[in-house]
């Protein structure tokens, strides 16, 4: 829970400085000012494997193995919360959380390595243009595989904790956060 150090400090402050009073409507919607909040980071590794058998008129084939790493951050864009997503009933607040999304995707070029190449027959060696195309396909493949990981679920859970703390700090006794159904998520992984 060291991650929530900042929030805990704020909570402490609020307990010491704040008085019991009505929550202003403007304060409820202040959460939108936060913008994008990244809550989960995954470091991934993949071996990109391409066997280029070539076309009928090309004698020989080529093989390449590339290793790469990607750092992916996921979170929620709180600025997309609409007024209709928040319902206040006295000291109880119900919020519809925006869908989690991939905030950043980094494939460090320094961590891309050609592990093996094998070229035979009359085929030419792999050029940087070829390797670049293979890496582009590799990136596509990693982005597709992200859907199978729990990154978005974890980002959503962490964001939920943040939101509950945020509204409890504002003085709400009960904070109910509804998640976006998985089939309505825009996973933003194909960009």
């Amino acid at each position: 829970m060291r991650n929530w150090l900042f929030l805990s400090l704020i909570t402490l402050l609020l307990v010491s400085c704040g008085d019991e009073k009505e929550v202003h409507e403007t304060e409820i919607y202040q959460i939108r000012a936060i913008g994008t909040l990244s809550t989960t980071e995954y470091t991934l590794g993949k071996i990109i494997h391409w066997d280029d058998e070539g076309e009928w008129y090309k004698f020989g084939d080529r093989k390449i193995l590339l290793s790469c790493k990607a750092t992916v951050k996921a979170g929620v864009n709180l600025s997309t919360i609409k007024e209709s997503d928040i319902e206040v009933k006295g000291r109880k607040i119900i919020i519809q959380l925006p869908p989690p999304e991939i905030v950043s995707f980094e494939m460090d070029p320094d961590l891309v390595r050609t592990e093996m190449t094998d070229v035979n027959g009359f085929r030419s060696d792999f050029s940087q243009v070829d390797k670049s195309k293979v890496l582009q396909k590799g990136e596509e493949s990693i982005r597709k595989d992200l859907k199978k990981l729990n990154i978005l679920d974890e980002a959503e859970q962490n964001a939920k904790i943040f939101i509950i703390d945020f509204y409890k700090n504002l003085g709400f006794e009960q904070v109910i956060v509804h998640e976006t159904p998985k089939d309505k998520r825009n996973t933003n992984v194909d960009h």
Binding site: T36, S38, Y42, T43, I48, E154
Partner: peptide
Amino acid sequence: TPLKVEQIRSILELNT
């Protein structure tokens, strides 16, 4: 080829 998860970190970053 499989995607290997090497590290998972909880973060709290405000992207402004």
